[in-house]
Design a protein around this nucleic acid. Structure first.
Lengths: 219, 219
DNA sequence: CGTTTGGTTGAAATGTGTCAAACTTTGTGG
DNA sequence: CCACAAAGTTTGACACATTTCAACCAAACG
């Protein structure tokens, strides 16, 4: 059985799929950063999660007819589209494969749970620290971060939408994080200067990412 | 193949499973209300979702070894415990059944996404209205609400932990909702007086619940 | 090199949190 | 069935984290 993948390049700030769509395919991020988001009735955006290479952000569409959120690029991206039908057939034929895909969506759900907690019960300082911790650990797991430094092509306004605070306050909080010597952030490059203190500030425990052993180096 | 279910009765405020556990079984809510939650490093609780009869709140444990959140009862509950092993065997034998379970966990994830948005980008008034809307629609789908009225055995403090605001502010916001004629709430019984305006106040659209057609009466 | 996008700053407004006390309802044991 | 305790709700005063608005600055880009 073959699994035809159609590679597509997208520019920054393009919608890949939109809330309300009924797609017949899903995609994997091959290169670049993307994010899931919703727009509220009064036009505010909430980013629900960041997607990095290796992620399949809309695997859910395999079993949910209508999309309940949108996904857009944060940087230029290379995406690999795969039709639902052949995936479904593979899943029926190989239950272990289905279980592996299922597991991926369960990890996504686990991350959403952590994000509910993050925006619901942590202050701005912690929220931002937490998101940075998560990104480091996930990027390391796919080899996109060495040590404690990685490309972070995310604007302060996007950070605001991810953490549920205002852009201005993100700016001030980033200055605090810098002033406290936890991070260095310039030119879209984030350097974590004090991992232990950043983890503590962000109330971060990587358990919810459900990484396999070999991926846990950073955590 | 048999699927042995062990029924268990629990009192109010009992933990069913705890963050960090590695369960070998999962459960369904047969009667009563429960909730998933996390406790942050500084001891604040975030409720991640409410569970009503028919839900299988920890189905995720089938494929994730370690629990990343706790689940506790909000009222006296009757739970049905089922071992993972027989479920896994059934899923391998009947891919359609696996897909149905998978779909359930995908809906859970969709609800978490909505909750991220709720606590991240809506004000207190909207957040509470939203949660009420969700509960009505879900309870109607399982026949536990008639018209626009249902048993809501949830304290203001639990409401606070679900919406990421303080207990005192929940109290004041509930008074606002009452004062505006949207709801009536006494003796753990919630009556929605103006469904259209409550939906609008809560920025509520039931799509994210992914109900099958016959369940959508209320939405 | 001008234009756009993103970052930074200050001042004022505000939603929400905190604290502490009083009140009400519910549950329980005598 | 009353009395008491416990749990939950309500209130007021005040503190404060965060938002909003508006302007300015810096960097990226064609």
């Amino acid at each position: 059985m073959r699994l035809p993948i159609q590679a597509v390049d997208l520019r920054t700030d393009q919608d890949v799929i939109r809330e309300g769509d009924r797609p017949s395919r899903c995609f994997a991020v091959l290169e670049g950063f993307a994010c899931s988001f919703k727009i509220t009735g009064v036009g505010k955006r909430q980013i629900l999660g960041f997607h990095i290479p290796g992620d399949m952000p809309d695997l859910q569409s395999l079993h949910l007819e209508v999309l309940d959120c949108s996904i857009g690029t944060l940087t230029p991206c290379k995406l690999g589209f795969i039709q639902h039908e052949p995936i479904r057939e593979l899943c029926e034929a190989y239950p272990r494969l289905a279980a592996a895909f299922w597991r991926e969506t369960l990890i996504d759900a686990s991350i959403f749970r952590e994000w509910v907690t993050n925006v619901g019960r942590r202050d701005a300082y912690s929220r931002i620290a937490h998101v940075m911790c998560e990104l480091l650990v996930r990027l390391r797991a796919v080899g996109l971060a060495e040590d404690h430094q990685f490309e972070l092509p995310i604007t302060q306004s996007e950070f605001a939408d991810a953490t549920g605070i205002s852009t201005v306050h993100v700016n001030r909080t980033l200055q605090e994080l810098r002033g406290d010597g936890l991070i260095q952030l310039k030119r879209e490059k984030l350097t974590i200067l004090d991992w232990d203190r950043l983890k503590e500030a962000g109330d971060f425990d990587a358990t919810y990412l459900h990484l396999k052993r070999q991926d846990q180096a950073a955590a």
